[in-house]
Design a protein around this nucleic acid. Structure first.
Length: 513
RNA sequence: GGUCCGUUCGUCUAACGGUUAGGACUCAAGAUUUUCAUUCUUGCAAUAGGGGUUCGAUUCCCCUACGGACUACCA
């Protein structure tokens, strides 16, 4: 029987989740759902220095807004801390699992795959600096480990004495020499690395009694029975180390599969998309607005007016494609269509224009009543009180023109309030000496019309134009000018029928003055 | 510097050795429209370079160039 698919998203709570992280979470989610498996959230907070308050809550809220909440790791909106049926591997926060890692690190020492090291960080820094000055690079590996301050160079007695007397020591992995490590990546295929090029990574720190990423990650993936690891490309260089760790623990045959996702790149210039790019280039890089403890605010897709479905759809297509021409997918359709085989190997430059286009597509799919409901808060803030039917009609006239609901007001203000000023360019182009008399006549005719619906108005005006031999362009544009104030908007008859006879006539008469 | 990954229109991408190299976004032009927008039609625009392998390479191999990631007691 095939093993259950269990994937995890394992962010570090060092700040808000950015859109690259959301994409990684999304691919994990889709992969798990497609295979009827579990999508797990684990918080990797083994760096006690970089913890940012609020980041964890932000991550949970962001995933929820996107509609890709994990089905394991969360209890009542918070990280699960106590094991139960839904969350059998709790706690899901690594700082609360600290007790379990030390014995794994020591197991590796016992088996000869790791060793204790006492070098101080200042001593290591100095060696790095010295090497740099001579144009070399200092690497803590097989070439130097025998000459540094660690358990490979001291006696057993001295070792236990020093272990007891201070906590300024770490456990390092003893990377083997000249071993060809053969790895498989689900997206990139076979990869080979010679172990001699790798260094002796720290696995566990006595100072804070915490593991580093590598140890915690491998141990927890094993303990939580993760079947597939889907993570960012920045982890590809440490894949050989992780392979060696699985081997050292004797877990090679139950090692998860790995897939490394290419990075999201800046729209302009070079390099990966970073937190700064958003506000520099005028688009959000975060799903939700983020208020840093320091007070700095970064914009979010939610607050900018994006629909979560549109955001997710856009993100899914950034580095993956279905192999068909289809571009619009809801979450279920994405789940159905997704496969790691169709994930693109190269990095994707993010394109804000296309993101807007996605939102426009989703906005168009929405029904009038929902859009009217979304528009209401904007109207209320302008002090406007209209019923749902009226707002829906207004929305029906302008929804094709907008990418966001927040654009509705500037697109439809004249449907709610009379113009305050008139565009002089339009006036210069169409306004003639005869215009006031003509508009007066139209206005008088409107007063005595039986029905004031769109068709009747259209008929009446074109009839007048025909009978009197007026110029259509001039008349219609001037009429529009008095109703709207400028050269924009839906058909003149549409506007008049919505705002009503009285308001239409009053705008024309007021404009004539 | 070293290790690893990558490279098709400006951008996102399709083409699992044989296509006039396709689609989408953007941009431009035209048509429709009383305006703006929508819509429709059309257009601009790409296989990084050089060697192989092959009857035939975007596709397979090698080199070069370029880009990226990593190179912490951070993740």
């Amino acid at each position: 029987m095939a093993k259950e698919t269990r994937v995890r998203f394992a962010p570090s709570p060092t700040g808000p989740l950015h859109m690259g992280g959301v994409r990684t979470a999304l691919y994990n989610y889709l992969y798990a759902k497609k295979r009827g498996g579990k999508f797990i959230l684990r918080i990797e907070d083994t760096d006690s220095q970089r913890f940012v308050p609020g980041a964890e809550e932000y991550i949970i809220e962001a995933l929820e807004w996107c509609g890709i909440s994990p089905n394991e790791g969360i209890k009542e909106g918070k990280i699960a801390e106590i094991a139960d049926k839904e969350n059998p591997y709790a706690p899901y926060r690594q700082s609360q699992r600290r007790g379990i890692y030390r014995k794994y690190a020591e197991e590796l020492v016992d088996k000869g795959f790791a060793y204790y090291a006492f070098d101080t960080s200042s001593a290591l820094d100095k060696m790095r600096k010295d090497a740099e000055e001579t144009g070399e690079t200092f690497t803590y590996n097989h070439s130097v480990r025998e000459s540094l301050d660690n358990s490979l160079t001291i006696s057993k007695e001295e070792l236990s004495r020093r272990l007891d007397e201070s906590d300024h020591w770490v456990i390092r992995f003893k990377m083997p020499i000249d071993k060809i490590i053969k790895m498989t990546d689900l997206i990139r295929g076979e990869i080979e690395v010679n172990s001699s090029t790798l260094d002796d990574k720290v696995l566990w720190k006595a100072a804070d009694e915490l593991p580093t990423y590598h140890l915690a990650n491998v141990v927890d993936d094993r303990l939580m029975e993760i079947s597939d690891v889907i993570r960012g490309e920045e982890w590809l260089p440490s894949l050989p180390l992780h392979y060696m760790l699985y081997e050292a623990f004797g877990w090679s045959d139950i090692r998860p599969s790995f897939a490394h996702l290419s990075l999201l790149l800046k729209p302009d210039g070079k390099g990966k998309l970073s937190k700064r790019d958003g506000d520099r280039l005028g688009f959000p890089v975060f799903p939700l607005e983020w208020r840093a403890p320091g007070g700095e605010i970064s914009s979010g897709y939610r607050e900018e007016g994006y629909y979560p479905d549109a955001f997710i759809n856009m993100l899914a297509l950034l580095g993956w494609n279905p192999g068909t021409q289809q571009e619009i997918f809801n979450l279920n359709e994405l789940t159905e269509a997704f496969s790691l085989e169709r994930v693109v190997k190269s990095g994707a430059k993010f394109n804000p224009e296309k993101a807007k286009w996605f939102n426009q597509e989703y906005l168009r799919q929405r029904d009038l009543l929902s859009l009217a409901e979304e528009f209401k808060p904007f109207l209320i803030s302008k002090g406007i009180d209209k019923n749902d039917e009226y707002i829906s009609s207004a929305v029906s006239m302008i929804k094709e023109r907008a990418s966001f609901v927040k654009e509705f007001w500037s697109l439809s203000d004249f449907l709610f309030t009379a113009p305050q000023s008139y565009d002089t360019a339009v006036k210069a182009k169409f306004w003639k000496e005869s215009t006031p008399a003509i508009l007066k006549e139209i206005s008088e005719s409107l007063k005595v019309m039986e029905n004031f619906d769109k068709e009747s108005i259209e008929q009446k005006i074109s009839q007048l134009i025909k009978e009197n031999g007026w110029q259509t362009g001039s008349v219609m544009n001037c009429l529009r000018l008095l109703l709207v104030g400028e050269s924009k908007g839906p058909g003149v008859a549409d506007i008049m029928s919505l705002i009503g006879r009285e308001e239409s006539i009053s705008r024309v008469e007021r404009g004539l003055e």
